[in-house]
Design a protein around this nucleic acid. Structure first.
Length: 968
RNA sequence: GGGCGCUUAGCUCAGUUGGUUAGAGCACCAGCUCGACACGCUGGGGGUCACAGGUUCGAAUCCUGUAGCGCCCACCA
């Protein structure tokens, strides 16, 4: 019965086999009707804009770790997967593509055709994204995969909008949007960029009505004078105090406008201290207008010309008007001066022309009450942030209670379920009066009815003569994302999923969407279901590139997780992801292009970013390639590099290490017999590794409970590599060769079984592959009582051991032995002694330690190459020996004929100097009355003890030096 | 401008409530192919904990300030 593990771990093969095995068995499919306390997570749905990058790999690896771990703990788990339609971003990408390929604008294509094209794009990228998630190992319930624009989500969106509208949470209002006068469309904030342009800063004056005074102000946009509705000064500005409440006359249009005091809009020191207020064309002015109940005067037409009603200026382009107005003001004597100035101006990403803030009708969600609900949920501790400080971000933002503009002038998204009609209310009552899925309110400004409906209203619903037309706009993407935790579970239907898995257990996300997404989920969750959407929010760090910048597609510094998986394996990727999920810090990940010709890693430089560099010459093979990154298409003439990073080698190496240790076991399992184990009769080394295992499992569990992923990974690395492989496996080698190997095999297999369970949430492919191999040789295993194990490590129970396994006295004995071995190895290395040559050693120590060391002689021989061992209180230093001091013992290694007396003396002298330095430090501490009086007695005692040890060590070293000098 | 963070070895990062001589991985140096593993083994070198003050018997850790960096928000008439 011998089974071998292949010489090499093949991560690609392991991945394919495991994925098939898991999916065929539907291990991760949730059953809301089954038993078990629920543990659920909804995925932060990736945008279908493009492929996933390393940030997603991090986000999803952490979620998967939690899901796999909780599943092993016996929870009834659901991880809900899906993607987000990402309105603006996706539409922009597809529009750009259409433009590039066919030279057509969206208007050329028309709404229906463009939307269809976007659906095609969505199908393609959704497939790719879900594929990437799968390859990472994500244990999602794929059968439940949702999309924010699918029918289930659409129903939730409709219901939410309808209820909010009915309860007056949704209203129609004015808002300044970024208007692209060239494309004649509004653009989102993130579709704009600011650029510094040469501009001017004009100063004018307005005459105060009924006085001979003037008020001076400055502006960079004189044409907006036409829309001025007030002049504001600071309330505490004495220069203008007497003018507040009076009026000024705008010379060119003759309108009289008030002088108001506004401490928010105006900064006393800036400019003249007075500001013209143009509510319809400036955000700050608009806000000021709301505070002071000022009117709105829209001066701009959609094409950037001045609207009708402004006399000679009407119909002219705004820049022409700017010129004319400055000239006209000067002629009238109201011009005070002009200075050149660099101006930060918002531009449209798409047309590259300057943005005009323009007033338009939009839909809003009233935030006061909803925000308060969400604030209370966190303040009352119902929703908890990890790390806690992120609650501040959340609370600060919600505290502003700014109404949420939910309409977007796009075609891709949930169309706003509002219909307009200029009919009589009687018509509405006649047609919809008996229906509870329709409601309406009056829009007096535009003399029409705003009708909201749960189900679409046909254009002829009111009859042939009365038009009823749907709003053209769509909802902000975040409106549907905000419903994600309950919409994906079928709300508003009371589905079994909703009852079992909602509220979800934890949300895992990154900090930049705490406000946009997390806060809104809490709001809508409470509004729709009366329940919070999740109990905990874990915020993980961000992965930055080697220069400390966030990774993004446009910069071209992102990494495709599949590149990493193909080079280092998914386990290595996950290892590294968990490893860098620390509490505080973002993590830098220097990226390299891997030369497609010779595999050399060529570090990405900043000039490679933003797709500026299309060709890179490999410094090794001198051949040319295209750097890796977000290139839309393959280059027919140039090979594109994959990307990689040395950071992932640690994970790959760790996987290999565990693989090889397992392989060693497999080579020594002949004759394996399952059997009971009595822990307290086991040899010392077995009790030691079980003690360490108990501690490791306990620590790991508590790390995971507190989302300390990085520490979880470190704890495991340390246990598996340093304790299990470096010491325990070595210590058990002897026993595997003798006739009593049965127990050694059982313990080794038992510990490996435990290791596979513990490592599984982190490195599932590796764990499962070894688990399956172990299945063939020892399906019955475990400590203390073996049992038939589960068919997959996914289904195995998470380890938890009795506290009695932890034996500090045994750990101390092993630690001392290890220190002795290290001391011997150090001498061996110092003299470059043959590793195989046994060394006779003498150890001066107490009687009890001597007894202990003698009992560990076999290990000392195997691990430290000890030949003769003499120990006890009477041991004398042999002549010409190297020595090493330890608080518990002095070890002497005879180096007859080998010793370099001079070098040894120098080294000893150096040690003495170091120890004396420490003595001085401690003595000064102890000499300090404050320390002795105020420090805890324990700390003081420890210092005294250390002082004592150091002195006696110096004494011993000095004696050894004397005898060395004398030729002994 | 407001808010939240960060600055520890050449690089990337740990460092729990202040308490012996500040840790890890990579890189570096030296030695090692002895039957799991060179993606390895053994040992070693390397740090004024950004800077300046303060609190304390005692500070990488707490407070203040300065400099640099990152992110989010608001962006200036």
């Amino acid at each position: 019965m011998s089974s071998e593990l292949p010489k090499q771990y093949e991560p690609q093969q392991a991945k394919q086999e495991c994925l098939k095995f898991w999916e065929d068995n539907k291990f991760f499919n949730a059953n809301p009707l089954a038993k078990g306390e629920p543990f659920s997570i909804v995925i932060p749905p990736p945008n279908v804009t493009g492929a996933l990058h390393l940030g997603h790999a991090l986000n999803n690896t952490l979620q998967d770790i939690l899901i796999r771990w909780r599943k092993m703990q016996g929870f009834n788990c659901l991880w809900m997967p899906g993607t987000d339609h990402a309105g603006i971003a996706t539409q922009a990408v597809v529009e750009k593509r259409v433009k590039e390929e066919e030279g057509k604008s969206r208007h050329d294509l028309g709404r229906d055709l463009l939307v269809k094209r976007i659906w095609d794009w969505k199908e393609q990228y959704e497939k790719r994204i879900l594929g990437q998630l799968r390859e990472i190992g994500s244990g999602c319930d794929w059968d439940r995969t949702r999309f924010t624009l699918d029918s289930v989500c659409a129903q939730a969106v409709r219901s939410t909008f309808f209820q909010m509208f009915k309860q007056n949470y949704i209203y129609r209002g004015k808002r300044l949007v970024n208007w692209d006068t060239h494309l004649q469309t509004s653009v989102a904030d993130d579709e704009t960029f600011t650029e510094t342009v040469k501009g001017s800063f004009w100063t004018f004056r307005y005459p105060v009505v009924g006085s001979d005074e003037f008020i001076r102000f400055s502006t960079t946009r004189p044409e907006t004078m036409l829309g001025d509705v007030a002049v504001a000064v600071h309330p505490s500005d004495e220069r203008y105090a007497h003018l507040v409440g009076k009026k000024v006359r705008i010379p060119l249009v003759g309108r009289e406008i008030p002088i108001i005091a506004d401490g928010i809009l105006v900064k006393k020191e800036f400019g003249t201290g007075a500001v013209k207020v143009t509510t319809a064309h400036d955000r700050n002015d608009y806000a000021c207008g709301l505070r002071h109940n000022l009117p709105l005067i829209n001066i701009l037409a959609n094409d950037g010309t001045i609207r009708d009603g402004f006399g000679v200026y009407s119909g002219l382009d705004r820049y022409e008007v700017r010129k004319r107005i400055t000239e006209d003001m000067e002629k009238l004597g109201f011009f005070e001066g002009k200075e050149d100035r660099d101006i930060e101006l918002a531009h449209s990403d798409r047309s590259k022309t300057p943005i005009e803030p323009i007033l338009s009708d939009q839909w809003f969600v009233k935030m006061d009450h909803l925000a308060q609900l969400a604030i209370d949920a966190v303040k009352d501790g119902k929703v908890k942030f990890y790390p806690e400080r992120y609650a501040d971000t959340y609370l600060d933002w919600l505290g502003e209670k700014r109404d949420w503009c939910i309409s977007r002038q796009l075609w891709w998204g949930h169309r706003i379920p509002i219909w307009y009609s200029k009919c009589e209310e009687a018509d509405l009552i006649k047609v919809f009066g008996t229906r509870n899925d329709v409601c309406w309110i009056r829009d007096n400004e535009n003399h029409q009815w705003l009708v909201c409906a749960l189900n679409d209203i046909p254009a002829d619903a009111l009859g042939k003569d009365l038009q009823i037309v749907q709003d053209n706009d769509v909802l902000d993407t975040w409106f549907s994302s905000a419903l994600w935790p309950h919409s994906t579970m079928g709300w508003p239907e009371q589905t079994p999923e909703l009852q079992k898995y909602y509220p979800t257990s934890v949300l895992v996300t990154s900090r930049d969407i705490i406000t946009l997404w997390v806060a809104r989920m809490v709001m809508t969750g409470l509004f729709n279901t009366g329940k919070i959407p999740f109990h905990k929010v874990y915020i993980h760090p961000k992965i930055l590139d080697g220069f400390g910048e966030t990774m993004s597609k446009s910069k071209g510094n992102g990494i495709d997780p599949l590149d990493i998986i193909s080079r280092y394996g998914a386990d290595a990727l996950r290892y590294q992801m968990a490893h860098l999920a620390t509490e505080t810090q973002d993590s830098r990940m220097p990226v390299s292009n891997i030369c497609p010709h010779c595999e050399t890693l060529v570090a990405v430089k900043q000039e490679h970013m933003y797709m500026r560099t299309r060709k890179v010459t490999c410094p090794n093979c001198k051949k040319v390639f295209r750097p890796g990154g977000p290139w839309p298409f393959p280059d027919p003439e140039l090979l594109t590099a994959c990307q990689g990073s040395e950071r992932f080698e640690q994970g790959r190496n760790f996987a290999t290490k565990l693989w090889n240790a397992s392989r060693f076991l497999f080579l020594n399992l002949e004759g394996y017999q399952a059997g009971n184990i009595e822990i307290h009769t086991l040899p010392l080394e077995d009790q030691w590794i079980l003690s360490r295992l108990q501690r490791t499992a306990e620590e790991l569990t508590s790390h995971l409970e507190e989302f300390r992923f990085s520490e979880s990974m470190r704890t495991q690395y340390e246990f598996i590599w340093s304790e299990f492989c470096d010491w325990y496996v070595e210590m058990s080698k002897g026993r595997l060769k003798d006739e009593n190997k049965a127990v050694a095999q059982r313990v080794l297999v038992g510990v490996l079984d435990a290791i596979l369970r513990l490592i599984h949430p982190f490195m599932p492919f590796l764990a499962e592959t070894i688990w399956q191999a172990l299945e063939e040789v020892c399906p019955v295993r475990g400590i203390p009582e073996p049992s038939r194990v589960e068919k997959s490590v996914v289904l195995a129970a998470w380890p938890k051991y009795p506290a009695s396994w932890f034996q500090p006295q045994i750990e101390a004995r092993i630690t001392r032995m290890q220190e002795l071995v290290r001391a011997i190895r150090e001498v061996r290395n110092r003299y470059l002694l043959d590793g195989r040559k046994l060394l006779d050693i003498k150890v001066r120590c107490s009687e009890s330690i001597a007894t202990d060391l003698k009992s560990l002689k076999a290990f000392l021989t195997h691990l430290g190459g000890v030949g003769d061992l003499e120990c006890g209180p009477e041991v004398l230093r042999p002549s010409q020996s190297a020595s090493h001091l330890h608080p518990d013992f002095e070890v002497y290694i005879s180096l007859l004929g080998l010793i370099d007396v001079q070098a040894e003396l120098v080294r000893m002298e150096k040690t003495i100097v170091e120890k004396q330095k420490q003595i001085l430090a401690i003595e000064s501490k102890l000499g300090n009355e404050g320390f002795v009086a105020k420090a805890p007695p324990k700390v003081v005692a420890l210092q005294r003890e250390t002082l004592h040890d150091l002195s006696s060590q110096i004494k011993v070293i000095s004696e050894n030096m004397v005898s060395l000098k004398q030729g002994n």
